[in-house]
């Protein structure tokens, strides 16, 4: 009896310890970024593009990278949705179910998940060259969408698979087709999970540097069209950290801070949206 109580306490302590480690990790990252970047963070930084000599410590801001990153990440997330969504529905047992094709698709997605994003970047770059295009917002969006697709599709599939079979059968029993049941019942029920999947992919996308390095390029200007090159926050961090000047390195930390805030804001917004739309979901 004593041993069982001890066991209970030990494992409880272990769980709290692990939870603490996760929180401490996040807190530490935020603290370091804030401490190192706070002095560079200014209104000017958020609202201006780099001026001459910015990377040597002169005035300007990183509006180009903020706008670029938002355009890249939203574009790529939207594009990935267009593909991930039908794939995740098709993997349900109502359609492909346990067929060989379905398990092949699942394995492929898992493999794609593990592919380093620099490979997507290199692949995207080759495609761009082949099509006679240069590094551009469009190229970046496509490469980033490839990075996001496996994460999104698998997380969505997980969410949709949690919808109870009996609930789907209730719709089928009234004469609903697969598609009607998916659209009107399954989607509503799985919407919070689907939003989480989209958010997960967005977070991965906006923080990815390697895939956009060759495909989106880098520029000090704001993008005017899909075919212009764009800057991005992860690359802004990368380039500025690589300089020997402390002021510029501090700006890199400020960029990282801005990146974190963007992810946080999008996350909170999608949670709010999620709780609104899940009003009707069954628990």
């Amino acid at each position: 009896m004593k041993w069982r109580l001890l066991e209970e306490k030990v494992f409880r302590a272990l769980m709290i310890l692990c939870l603490g480690a996760v929180i401490a990790g996040l807190a530490l990252i935020v603290a370091v970024i804030t401490a190192k970047g706070a002095r560079s963070l200014s209104w000017e930084m958020l609202t201006q593009v780099p001026k001459g000599g910015y990377y040597l410590g002169k005035s300007g801001g990183i509006l180009n990278a903020i706008v670029g990153s938002l355009a890249l990440a939203f574009g790529a997330t939207a594009l990935a949705c267009v593909f991930a969504f039908p794939v995740c529905l098709y993997l349900q047992r109502d359609y492909a179910g346990r067929s060989r094709l379905a398990s092949f698709v699942r394995t492929s997605l898992d493999l794609l998940w593990g592919v380093p994003s620099i490979v997507y970047g290199a692949f995207g770059f080759t495609v761009l060259l082949y099509m006679g295009m240069r590094a551009s917002l469009l190229g970046g969006i496509i490469a980033l969408a490839l990075v996001e697709l496996p994460i999104m599709a698998r997380a969505m599939e997980e969410a949709v698979r949690m919808v109870p079979q009996a609930l789907k059968e209730a719709s089928y029993a009234m004469g609903g087709t697969h598609w009607e049941t998916m659209r009107k019942v399954v989607l509503r029920q799985a919407l919070p999970g689907i939003l989480t999947a989209i958010l997960l992919a967005f977070g991965r996308g906006i923080g990815d540097a390697a895939s956009v390095l060759f495909t989106a390029g880098y520029t000090d200007n704001l993008p005017r069209s899909l075919l212009d090159p764009v800057a991005s926050l992860p690359l802004a961090v990368f380039f500025q950290l690589g300089t020997p000047f402390p002021e510029v390195q501090s700006r890199a930390h400020a960029c990282a801070f801005i990146l974190l805030v963007i992810v946080l804001v999008v996350s909170v917004l999608s949670r709010l949206l999620g709780s609104r739309v899940s009003k009707y979901s069954l628990r």
């Binding site: 209730a170 719709s171 029993a173 509503r188």
Partner: peptide
Amino acid sequence: ISLRKKMGLLSQKPQPLPMSIYDNVAY
């Protein structure tokens, strides 16, 4: 489809659809 329209089902555990009372009946 028309077979299932003809045969109503009441299952063991009630399965309300994730929507309003009205929309459940109108489904």
